[in-house]
Computed example of a mutant assay.
Amino acid sequence: MSQQFKTAKNLALVTDKATTMLFKHSKDLASTLIEVDTGKRNKSMVVTIDLPDDTEAVNWSTPLTSFDREVLDTVNTLLEVDNRTVTIDQIYRHMIGQPQSKRKAPKAMAESIERSMNGLLCRVVKIDATAEAKAYGLEKAIFTGSILSFESLTIAAGGKQVTAYNILSSLLFEKYSKAKKQVDSSLPITAGNVPIRHTTSNIELVSYLKRRILAMRPTKTQQRKAISNRINVENMLDELGIAPRGEKTASTRVAKTRALQTVMKILDYWKTIICTDQKPFISSYLVHGKKPVKSIEIRF
Rank of each mutant, 00 (worst) to 15 (best):
T249W: 06
V124F: 04
Y136N: 02
D89E: 13
R258W: 04
I147S: 00
K220A: 14
T15C: 10
T65I: 01
D54E: 11
G246R: 05
L153R: 13
K178C: 10
S146R: 02
A191W: 04
I203H: 00
H94E: 13
M117H: 02
I113L: 08
K104M: 09
L153F: 12
A57M: 14
S283Y: 06
A110C: 13
T74A: 14
D73R: 11
I189T: 12
S66H: 11
P292Q: 13
L209T: 03
E239I: 05
R245S: 15
K102C: 04
A30G: 14
A156K: 12
S66M: 10
A179W: 09
D54Q: 14
E70K: 12
T190I: 07
L260G: 08
T85L: 12
P280W: 03
L33A: 07
T190S: 15
K104T: 14
A110V: 12
P188V: 11
R69E: 11
S112K: 08
D89G: 13
W270Q: 03
K160C: 06
V75A: 01
L51T: 08
I296A: 08
K181V: 15
H198V: 00
A110F: 11
A156G: 09
I274D: 00
D184P: 14
Q90S: 15
L171G: 09
E70C: 13
A179L: 14
D73E: 12
K104F: 06
S207D: 13
L214P: 02
L72Y: 10
R93D: 10
A243E: 00
P280D: 12
A108S: 15
S177F: 04
E114R: 11
G241R: 05
P188T: 12
P244Q: 01
M109A: 02
T199M: 05
Q100N: 14
T77Q: 04
Q182W: 11
L240V: 04
M1V: 14
K43N: 11
K180V: 13
G192C: 03
K256Y: 00
A8P: 08
I266L: 03
V263C: 10
S283V: 03
N232G: 04
